[in-house]
Amino acid sequence: MMNTENHSAQTIPYRESSQPRVPWLQRKWMRTILYHGFVALTAIAMIYPILWLFGSSLKGSDEIWTNQAALIPDDIKFDNYSNGWKGFGSITFTTFYKNSFIYAGVGTLLTVSASAVVAYGFARVKFTGRQFWFGVMLLTLMLPIQVQIIPQYIMFNKLDWINTFYPLLLPRLGGQAFFIFMIVQFIRGIPNELDEAALIDGCGKIGIFFRIILPQLKPAIITAAIFSFYWTWEDFLTPLLYLNSPDLYTVSLALRTYSDPSGQTDWGAIFAMSSLSLVPVFVIFVVFQRYLVEGIATTGLKG
């Protein structure tokens, strides 16, 4: 209820008839305060656990469990970060970050660009077998990865690709079903008139894709990039299976190698490195989400 009110207040010019009857709610500043009050409180509740994680990463090893509930440590220490960064052996987190950036960066680039191209094919070109292949693509999403691990491993092992980035990156050349489906849905939300106008102007399917569809897909592509980066960044299973030597480990995989239920664990370092590993994902989000704000509706349409 309240959502729609606030939403409409922002996107359309004021009109008496669309406003609630409660007098004080008609004041714009009142509504602004209500909005910020409500959203900010919810937002704080949402990020509380993350603040706790960050707070714990600044606690000394004696304080982590004894002063568990506290958000702000009694005694702020940055040792956890320097200790954690050391990694293990002579391999530091510098290496893990480099590997993660390769995997997530290149992986995202491949995934998103391939997905957009493939999605256009499914959404706007009527070829024989379209529905069949689209169905097959959806089916690939429904088979748990756990039962595909072994055959996949044997296959990549036969290709002699173990301990390289090939098994991680090459399958991405085809995009990923989730993003293809998502972009298909967005393309189908774009009016056909635009295509047809372009057709009259002499554009082919390929021309329409690059000149009409692609610019309109900006929100979808940015969304896909944010997710793809994050999902690749946090993926530990593929690196676990295919990257053997620690100098190829990614951040998410390295983080998992630290804890053993029966052994000594440097929790401060784990919390510190876990907090730090959120930073790239978060930066990507903050940078990209700016483009979500100026969405399609305001950029206007060009025929």
Binding site: I150, Y153, I162, L240, S245
Partner: peptide, 25 residues
């Protein structure tokens, strides 16, 4: 010596996969 350290669960998941692939350490 190329080493492959893991946590307990990951160690066994990985070993089982490598055993199936004939590629054990």
């Amino acid at each position: 010596i190329v080493y492959e350290p893991s946590g307990w669960d990951d160690h066994w998941t990985k070993l089982a996969t490598q055993a199936a692939g004939g590629d054990l350490p």
